[in-house]
Design a protein around this nucleic acid. Structure first.
Lengths: 343, 343
DNA sequence: CGACGGCCCGTAAACGTTTCCGGAAGTTGT
DNA sequence: ACAACTTCCGGAAACGTTTACGGGCCGTCG
């Protein structure tokens, strides 16, 4: 029947029906151990029967914990962010925490305001993906006693700030060795915005691999872009116009790589026969584009999950070995790279 | 200085500093009109200065409204859902509502449990994308007084249930007319799971267009699949093995279409020269795959936004002209379709 | 046999708001 | 000059929990 008597059932009713006080009900609710087994059993049964569910607001107010975790992402849509979000929300669900999703639209002010609100009794902590804030601003949050972990920091952060990121440099190195191994010598790089950790670390790998192969980097082969498809296409077009064009391009993410393929195709070049392209991310796009992208895999969902486990330990006030986790990357070879063309 | 005195500032402190009661502060906070202009001004200034932010839990407990809206999606990652989520969260932000994201993993029980919790004081209402529940279960929610709107109903729903969807039939019709106009006569359909609204309505458009062109539908050309790439590839492979294979396939979503292209290419067929393919959704994938997909555009983000505006009106207890909104679809012609090949 | 310690459990205070009710002061109408 | 409204604001209850504190009961130990 369950006649929807919908004055929602409160702890009071459960207590009355069980013939105990609300304190006792609360205790069984929270798994405290100072309740007699048979009492616990009785109360549990009634909770079950009446379909009682604790009011989160009341709990939040009283206990200071809300069971909500804010997740700040620049945007929801791009696969890059939704992959992280997906991993994070799954992990959060397993910890019985709810996700308060907050897209910041890449706007610094909006992110600050949002965080401000989140701190104030709305959430227990937060995941901040690709934050707009400076290290100082983030430290301030930390000092205010707020729990959060940064995923994929945009700028270099102070050591005190918990973060999880990917092994950019090693990934870039793997990509370059692959290209070098195929005989390429003129390898261009299409980077992301300079100053970003992801850009600079990958750039470091690019240079290191070049140096290890005894190749002097040519500044003309290094062009800065914006991690978008169109940017990748433009950059590639410029690169191909060079008097001595590259035989391979290392794009710093998959979008750029896709743009590179489009630009190459636009001027009749075949990939990989005439131009090799390697990306970074291994987003879903990498497998559906053709030729399928050779790219460096970042474990995005895993990064989300890892951030959650860091955060939950933070929430439980555990002591830490390390606040910084760097997840490994590895090259996935598909169809967009091949031996250097014979001249 | 803002010395982070971080005993967080409460309404009490603001009231004391302004020399008024907390009731008055609450009134200016909520924009009530029974406050003298200069008092309002004074209080507002102090709120500003002290950086006061209302505690949501307390507000939720006292006022019964939390400012949170649950968004239930099967999964976060697939572009289809993240596009809807993106539109919805943007719109929710504009209404000063926060998003409580709940991925259900396509599991009926999990969705039910989640909804149960959401109802109980956690949220003011919800958006349910592609719900797992039957119409009856949803009606029960409605009767319990919970506010929600369904986005892209999976099954046919009772009229009382607010929903927003896309014009499946018309979209399918447009796709078919395009193919028919190119001279195709043997046009296969790769459908989604039968019983789903999206599948059945698109199937209706498929049949209607065929009928209008005086073509008898061939059951062999209609194969059911699962909206995934691999499914599309398998279905297409089977179709191409037919004694009299189709010259065009109408895939009921972009994933299926991408699978179709892959399968065609796998056996050396060119798209669109040897086989035309049209998809449905116009997801981001449609533009990066090659050849770029001719597909029916569904305004996914717009559906999210629309659902939010429906929900907010529901929350304000407004009376309604209509509870069902169907957003238009339109064919986007790109490169995956062409004239029927000469035999 | 009395004191002490554990186990269970109830009482009540607190959490920070919103909102109902009513009262003081000021305004208008007669 | 008095009644009847308005306008503005304060007091206090209520929202549904968690948790500190203390007390009754029982068993154990000296």
């Amino acid at each position: 029947m369950a006649e929807l008597a919908h004055a929602r059932v409160t702890i009071r009713e459960v207590a009355d029906e069980a013939g105990v006080s609300i304190a006792t009900v609360s205790r069984v609710l929270n798994g405290r151990d100072d309740v007699a087994p048979e009492t616990r059993e009785l109360v549990s049964r009634i909770i079950q029967e009446r379909g009682y569910i604790a009011n989160r607001s009341a709990r939040g107010l009283s206990a200071g914990r809300t069971g909500l975790v804010g997740v700040l992402v620049p945007l929801v849509f791009p696969v890059y962010f939704s992959a992280i979000l997906s991993g994070a929300s799954e992990a959060l669900y397993e910890h019985d925490l709810r996700v308060l999703l907050s897209p910041t639209g890449h706007e610094h002010d909006r992110e600050v305001t949002l965080l401000d609100r989140l701190m104030h009794g709305l959430t227990d902590g937060a995941l901040i993906v690709l934050p707009e804030e400076s290290s100082e601003e983030l430290e301030r949050l930390l000092d205010a006693g707020y729990n959060f972990v940064v995923v994929d920091p945009r700028l270099r952060l102070n050591d005190r700030i918990p973060s999880v990121s990917a092994a950019h440099t090693s990934g870039a190195d793997q990509a370059m060795r692959h290209l070098l191994g195929l005989g390429h010598r003129r390898i261009a790089a299409i980077t992301g915005p300079s100053g970003w950790v992801a850009t600079e670390d990958r750039r470091r790998g690019y240079h290191a691999a070049l140096a290890a192969a005894g190749i002097l980097p040519d500044p003309a082969l290094e062009v800065e872009s914006d991690f978008e498809i169109a940017g990748g296409a433009d950059a590639t077009a410029a690169l191909l116009d060079l008097p001595d064009p590259p035989t391979a391009v290392f794009a710093f993410n998959d979008n750029l790589a896709i743009g590179a393929i489009q630009a190459a195709r636009a001027r009749g070049l075949r990939v990989p026969e005439d131009l090799s392209v390697v990306g970074f991310d291994d987003s879903e796009h990498a497998t559906i584009v053709s030729p399928a992208l050779t790219t460096v895999r970042q474990p995005l969902a895993e990064m989300g999950r890892t951030a959650v486990s860091l955060l939950t330990r933070l929430l439980e006030r555990q002591r830490f070995e390390t606040l910084h986790i760097e997840l490994g990357t590895r090259l996935v070879v598909r169809e967009s790279t091949g031996p250097v063309p014979a001249r």
